[in-house]
């Protein structure tokens, strides 16, 4: 992490506290499975955001969750299934020599009171060296001109991040975030 967002919070004021809707013992669960194609990246992050809306998350919390889900799902598509351009099987713009590795990505969410657990899993090629993969700016595909910041973003935007993976065994990303911690309003705005 080059720079953590610590100092920027200075200018924010905090309103409110725990959400009323996050009552005692509240639990909810959902699971979605979809094709590992880039059209589904937006769908995935919006679905997870919709799942937590009744906890009244702040806009910032929603953005954080969407970004983290987007990173995890994009990684599963590009790296897990090596579908680097995210093509679907029926994509007309796809070059003839582009091989599509068919696969599915599954998102499993559990809301436990105000704690959101998100698992993003694929059955793709997995990773040999998880620590190296998690280093900021590291990427196995520099030619794609992606930033290598995927894991760094997941770490920055969620409270907890755990990665389970082994070569040819797929990858599961566990992320946790507390919702409704406070309404962060930029006092300058």
């Amino acid at each position: 992490m080059m720079q953590k967002g610590k100092e920027e919070k200075k200018s924010f004021t905090c309103h409110g506290g725990m959400q009323m809707t996050a009552g005692q013992g509240y639990q909810n669960e959902m699971e979605i499975t979809f094709d590992a194609i880039s059209d589904n990246e937006a769908f995935a992050r919006v679905a997870v955001a919709a799942f937590v809306t009744h906890l009244n998350p702040t806009l910032e919390e929603l953005s954080d969750i969407k970004t983290a889900v987007s990173e995890a799902v994009t990684n599963a598509i590009i790296h897990g299934y090596e579908n680097i351009h995210g093509y679907s099987r029926s994509d007309g713009g796809r070059p003839a020599d582009e091989i599509i590795h068919e696969g599915k990505v599954t998102i499993h969410c559990v809301l436990d009171k105000d704690l959101l657990h998100i698992d993003v899993s694929d059955q793709g090629i997995g990773m040999e060296d998880i620590d190296q993969a998690m280093e900021p700016l590291f990427t196995t595909r520099p030619e794609l001109e992606r930033s290598g910041m995927g894991f760094a973003f997941m770490e920055a935007f969620m409270d907890e991040l755990e990665v389970e993976s082994a070569p040819n065994q797929g990858t599961t990303i566990h992320m946790t975030k507390k919702i409704g911690v406070g309404d962060w309003i930029d006092s300058e705005e």
Binding site: S63, T67, S70, T74, E145, R146, S147, G148, M149, G150
Partner: peptide, 13 residues
Amino acid sequence: RFMDSSGIGIIMG
């Protein structure tokens, strides 16, 4: 309204 690390890649590249 939304950007992830792909946007960072676009700008850096």
